[in-house]
């Protein structure tokens, strides 16, 4: 057991667990995108960043891959975290403006403008589909090919692999394919629509006191 402080509250967590898990246990919601409880942590999207305070310094780390340590001091919703997280979501939106998951996240964070040039790639390389295929279906039909700016999710030689069982899990888990934003025209890269029209699910672990969910209210990201 290790003892750590998250948002000023002392807590204990099992050794080997991550900061994200410890925070969720406490009812603190950290927005995540590439994290899925049934899949191995990947740390690709960086949406779940938290501030780790070490003396007078602090660093930003992805909480989904950060193991808990004794005496760790974590801030999940500091100014620095919020600003960086907004920037990250803007960057993700710039490469994938038609994702409802991302648009909802942006609306929840109060982002009203994407400052970057929008280049729709239709994929944010979160690796959810790749991990789902490999870990849950034990198949490994899809994976990443290429590198750098030409990195993309594909099948080998662009043919349907023998391993594929047509389960459709890769599409189901994809934050872009399954939940496409249907807003016709985006203004400054954001639609900002659905969040105001459709009531969102209320937070399942809400303790009614967490600041992490922000002034917009308790919402599931």
């Amino acid at each position: 057991m290790v003892e750590l402080t998250i948002d000023g509250v002392r807590t204990i967590a099992l050794e080997g667990t991550t900061v994200l898990e410890a925070a969720t246990e406490m009812g603190i919601i950290i927005p995540t995108l590439c994290y899925h409880p049934a899949l191995s942590p990947y740390g690709a999207c960086r949406v779940c960043i938290v501030e780790v305070v070490k003396g007078n310094r602090s660093s930003l780390e992805a909480s989904c891959t950060l193991p808990v340590e004794d005496g760790q001091v974590i801030l999940t919703n500091s100014e620095k975290v919020r600003k960086t997280r907004e920037l990250i979501v803007e960057l993700l939106l710039a490469s994938c403006p038609n994702s409802k998951t991302l648009q909802d996240m942006a609306a929840n964070m109060g982002i009203n403008k994407v400052r970057f040039k929008i280049k729709d790639r239709g994929c944010i390389l979160c690796g959810l589909c790749v991990r789902y295929c490999k870990e849950q279906m034990k198949s490994g039909g899809i994976g990443f090919i290429g590198r750098g700016t030409s990195r993309r999710v594909a099948t080998a030689f662009d043919v349907t692999p023998e391993e594929c069982r047509n389960c459709g899990g890769c599409e189901w888990i994809c934050p872009v394919c399954e939940r496409a934003c249907t807003a016709g025209n985006l203004i400054d890269g954001v639609c900002g629509g659905c969040q105001n029209l459709i009531p969102v699910e209320t937070c399942p672990v809400c303790t009614g006191c967490s600041e992490s969910v922000g002034p917009q209210g308790h919402k599931v990201y």
Binding site: K134, S139, G140, G141, I142, G143, F144, I145, G146, R147, A154, T155, A156, F157, P161, E163
Partner: peptide, 13 residues
Amino acid sequence: DLPLIQVYGVATF
């Protein structure tokens, strides 16, 4: 005994 995509991914990387 590796998925083909893993070999292909390395080859394209």
